[in-house]
């Protein structure tokens, strides 16, 4: 007959799955909001974007696909809210083909939010004047290096098929010299390509948004100053949302912050299962001795 301790080390995986499902779903239905405290890498990114001079722009590279959408999409939305709230010019591009639809979704969501509140044309966010969506270009080395020379020649047509050199915003954005910071949001190695090629060759500042599992890879670059600031995982997105709401008074749905309650519960459940497993393991080891 199996002892209680042995049972603790052999909990059926279906029980673990079911409990994880419960602890993820219940906080999504009944969320409890936990105020995130922005960490230095997120704050650095926010502060730098906040002080972008008038003649420079922010470039957001949407380099993730739907599999990491839940974790990374709130970052794109928060960045765009911040930039538009501070009237910064924004250029958007994608290194992932599947990022196109997500970038389009983020732009539509944020521009609709701002335009529904706008009182005049000057308050509105207008395509071609306040932002541009260059689209996707293959292979990645072509746009990453080519944008250092001439962005309009790399993207002759934008995502919607307009000639990029006919857009008013492009009169002020010629190449990386006009880019204050390029933030690459990715669940892959794309930000490293920007660091290796765009920053090394042209000196453009790089920011990063990454999945939590990948965040550790960016810290050497953050320490060396090659990455100006970064958001890591859903928590990074929630921290940026917090800063945007607190300092820019921009209120909108905070998907990352809302999901933090679910993530917290899931982390705690996983920790509990690990503790249970270890209690069983040590009790059995003592018995054997």
């Amino acid at each position: 007959m199996t002892s209680v301790w042995e049972k603790l080390t052999k909990i059926d995986r279906r029980v673990i799955y079911f409990m994880l499902l419960v602890v993820i779903v219940v906080p999504l239905i009944f969320p409890f909001r936990l105020k995130p405290k922005p960490m230095p890498p997120v704050e650095k990114l926010f502060n730098y974007i906040d002080t972008i001079p008038e003649d420079k722009c922010l470039v957001v590279s949407v380099d993730y696909s739907p599999d990491t959408e839940a974790e990374l999409h709130p970052m794109s939305i928060a960045l765009l809210r911040h930039a538009f709230a501070r009237h910064k010019k924004v250029g958007v591009l994608c290194m992932s083909l599947l990022g196109l639809g997500l970038a389009q979704d983020a732009l539509t969501t944020v521009t609709n939010e701002f335009n529904s509140r706008a009182m005049s044309n000057a308050d509105s966010i207008v395509y071609g004047r306040d932002y541009v969506f260059w689209g996707w270009q293959q292979p990645p080395l072509v746009p990453i290096l080519g944008m250092g020379e001439n962005i309009a020649s790399v993207f002759p047509l934008d995502y919607y098929g307009y000639r990029t050199d006919s857009l008013p915003i492009m009169k002020k954005i010629k190449n990386y010299n006009d880019v204050a910071i390029l933030v690459s949001i990715a669940g892959s190695a794309v930000p490293f390509w920007y660091i290796t090629y765009a920053q090394t060759s042209f000196g453009v500042r790089i920011g990063a948004g990454s999945t939590a599992v990948q965040a550790a890879d960016f810290y050497p670059y953050l320490n060396s100053g090659q990455v100006t600031g970064m958001m890591s995982g859903m928590k990074g997105g929630a921290e940026y949302e917090e800063l945007v709401e607190e300092r820019c008074n921009i209120f909108g749905r905070r998907k990352a912050t809302d999901a933090m309650s679910s993530q917290t519960a899931a982390h705690i459940w996983i920790m509990i299962t690990i503790i249970i497993g270890n209690i069983g393991y040590f009790a059995m080891r003592r018995r054997k001795k």
């Binding site: 739907p66 899931a266 270890n278």
Partner: peptide
């Protein structure tokens, strides 16, 4: 938005379940 995004998100979300089960089984001091 309604096919690719949910399918991709579902694939990645399933990882959480495997990770939870693996952490319980493998994380022994």
């Amino acid at each position: 938005t309604y096919i690719e995004v949910p399918l991709g998100a579902t694939m990645f979300a399933m990882l959480a379940f495997f990770m939870a089960s693996a952490a319980y089984r493998a994380f022994r001091a």
